Simulated scan of single mutants.
Amino acid sequence: MTAGLDVGAPQAQSIASDQDVVRVRQMVRTVAVAVKLSLVDQTKLVTAASELARNTLVYGGGGEVLVSIVENGRRRGVRIVFTDKGPGIADLDLALTDGYTTGGGLGLGLSGARRLVDEFDIETAAGKGTRVTVTKWSR
């Protein structure tokens, strides 16, 4: 799947199965390498993306991800947007609390994913789903 990936263009992937979570990991790794993130930052970003993709599948009932290369004038980075149309997060403050988990994921939760990236934004509404945007910048 990633062999012919045009990393310069935004990459979209549906998340409807465990295999899709694996595809998201591969796609994020490929783009992170293209942006020249350090190995440590690649690992952090792939780990966060894996957790967020799993959350999209398990709690959001599936959704999609968009992976893009971004620039801020001085450096390049990878921006990843996860979107689902699930039930939303009832208690966002609780969900962002360190150590909070409902089980089944890597045990990082949203707070762990937030610590692994440089920018983290979440929008959620009951019955309307959740959108999580993360960015990791090259050093």
Rank of each mutant, 00 (worst) to 15 (best):
M1L: 13
T2N: 10
D6H: 09
G8E: 15
A9P: 08
A12E: 09
S14F: 10
I15R: 00
S17T: 11
D18P: 02
D18A: 14
Q19H: 09
V21K: 07
V22R: 08
V22E: 11
R25V: 11
R25A: 12
Q26M: 08
V31Y: 07
A32L: 06
L37F: 10
L37I: 06
V46E: 08
T47D: 03
A48E: 14
L52W: 07
R54E: 01
L57A: 11
V58I: 12
G60S: 11
V65W: 03
V65Q: 07
R75F: 05
R76W: 03
G77H: 08
G77R: 08
R79E: 13
F82G: 03
F82R: 00
T83G: 00
T83P: 00
D84M: 06
G86P: 00
G86R: 06
I89C: 02
A90P: 10
L92F: 11
A95E: 09
A95M: 02
L96R: 00
T97I: 05
D98W: 03
T101R: 08
G103T: 00
G104T: 07
L106N: 05
G107F: 08
G109P: 06
S111L: 14
G112S: 12
A113Y: 14
R114M: 15
R115F: 13
L116Y: 12
D118G: 06
E119A: 08
E119H: 09
F120D: 06
F120Y: 14
E123W: 13
E123Q: 15
K128H: 11
K128Y: 09
T130I: 02
V132E: 05
T135N: 04
S138C: 11
S138Y: 04
